[in-house]
Computed example of a mutant assay.
Amino acid sequence: MSLRRPSRQDASNFASGRTSRAIIASFSLLAIALIGGKWIEEYLLLSRDAAQMDVLQAEFDEAHRRREKLLSIEWKLKGALNRAKERGVGPDDIEFVRESLIGIVRDAGASLRRLEVGENEVRAWSMAEDDPRNDTAPLYGDNSSFVLHKHAVQIQADGRMESIEKVLESINSHGWLMSTKNLLIGPTGSINAMASIEVTMILYGLEPAPEDLMEEDEEFAMRRSPRQFR
């Protein structure tokens, strides 16, 4: 058996085939690189978007938590304000308080000697760090949309010791917003009325501020604010 030497045609065909395969392989690698590059780019973009979504979700959860806390505080403040308004004594309530004190002394079996109700005192109520016992609101505090009413009430009565105790208990049970300026209990020297009581109370009430007062506060705030220079 004899071996045939490859001809030039065979060598040319072999070289051509190898070149074709190289070209095909190159185009295949180029296509994979192009398509794969797009996939990688899209993957990176999606990963970045996912990370941003995680950040936004965390911020949303924090905002929701803060909103729930704010609503809870607002609900508590509204409840405290409503209770203060219910217990407060304003100009329209002072006559009811007077009649109630007369009834308290009578029902306790004591004798009323004096009952005086002072004039209504009104001042602005500050938004923070205010005390109703003070005559004025904090100097540098911002006024709220409420005003504070104050009435001084003096009551003097005498009777048995049990009756005097009932008077004090009944006044306390009404739950009025009040402070005690002075309280004196002493003997009378009488057999029928062994003790006497003299109390000076300050009754407080919060009510919405009149519109004219709110306008005055806004005008004062504008005068107090520094000028703007361009």
Score class of each variant (00 low, 15 high):
156 Q>P: 03
187 P>N: 15
122 V>H: 00
26 S>D: 09
181 K>W: 01
199 V>I: 15
174 H>A: 10
69 K>W: 00
27 F>K: 08
17 G>Q: 12
103 G>D: 14
108 A>I: 06
119 E>L: 13
79 G>M: 14
32 I>Y: 10
174 H>I: 10
32 I>K: 06
135 D>G: 13
1 M>C: 09
33 A>D: 04
24 I>A: 12
167 V>A: 04
66 R>I: 08
39 W>K: 14
94 I>E: 04
112 L>N: 09
123 R>N: 04
75 W>L: 15
193 A>T: 15
110 A>I: 06
205 G>Q: 02
171 I>G: 01
191 I>K: 02
110 A>N: 02
227 R>C: 04
132 P>K: 11
164 I>D: 02
190 S>H: 03
162 E>N: 15
147 V>T: 06
175 G>N: 07
114 R>Y: 01
188 T>N: 00
42 E>F: 13
26 S>R: 13
39 W>P: 00
76 K>N: 14
212 D>H: 12
157 A>S: 05
175 G>A: 11
193 A>Y: 14
5 R>L: 04
92 D>S: 11
124 A>N: 08
40 I>P: 00
9 Q>H: 14
77 L>I: 07
151 H>V: 05
55 V>H: 08
172 N>K: 15
217 D>E: 13
124 A>L: 03
146 F>R: 01
130 D>V: 12
186 G>I: 00
162 E>V: 11
45 L>I: 09
21 R>I: 06
123 R>G: 03
